[in-house]
Amino acid sequence: MNNRPMLEIVSLQKRFGENLILRDINLKVARGELVFIIGPSGSGKSTMLRCCNRLEEPSEGDIILDGRNIMSGTSRDLDQMRLKVGMVFQGFHLYPHMSVLKNVTLAQRKALGRSADEANARAMDMLDRVGLAEKANAMPSELSGGQQQRVAIARSLALDPLVMLFDEPTSALDPELVGSVLAVMKDLKSKGMTMLVVSHEMEFARETADRVVFMDGGVIVEEGAPEEIFGAPKADRTRAFLSRVRR
């Protein structure tokens, strides 16, 4: 088993016009590690996550995925790389004109080149894993938000990613639906998936995260084990943020 990081963010900078959104971010995520990112809105945490599969184009710096720099290479390489980085969005973004099953098979067929049988079998496995095998033929509009998000997770998992990125996966959900999505994420973690999670679910972070990263103003202010960050934060900014979200 090699111990080089699964994902490494090196000197990442992101500028929008004059605004420097990310200033020199460095972060290593080990295999099977769940890194949980917290911070006030506008701190750059979502932007950082979106730079990891170049949905947002970094202004400077490198993103190393399993030893390969995703900043170099052709657009074909970029598409291949994106297959290996699963992404789950706040707004689910299922394809509304396709059944649940087709949502999960589309990229398997088109981007991975799997046969219909292979893709269907894999999709059913993944839907089973998120507890929605019986909804395979439903349309997304017939599902609750929590169910849609779990299908979105299955859609990414079906491509056998090395890393899963979660961008506020439960923020758009009614409170009673949050648990089912977090349970799926917890299960993923226990099966050894490497995960980078931007979220406000502090309770989940405390129980599941290996490491918590606090970002503010485009920099990583502090990082450490959940008990350190939540129990004894060193930086004033971290303390101030945590007292605000706890209230």
Binding site: G86, F89, K110, L112
Partner: peptide, 29 residues
């Protein structure tokens, strides 16, 4: 929505594939 593009591109679909399988069917409807 932009989210549809991002979801499709994040699963490794090319721009052309995203357009033909995801965006245009919804756009035309």
């Amino acid at each position: 929505g932009k989210g549809q593009w991002e979801a499709a591109r994040s699963t490794g679909l090319t721009k052309a594939q995203t357009l033909s399988s995801v965006v245009l069917p919804q756009a035309i409807r």
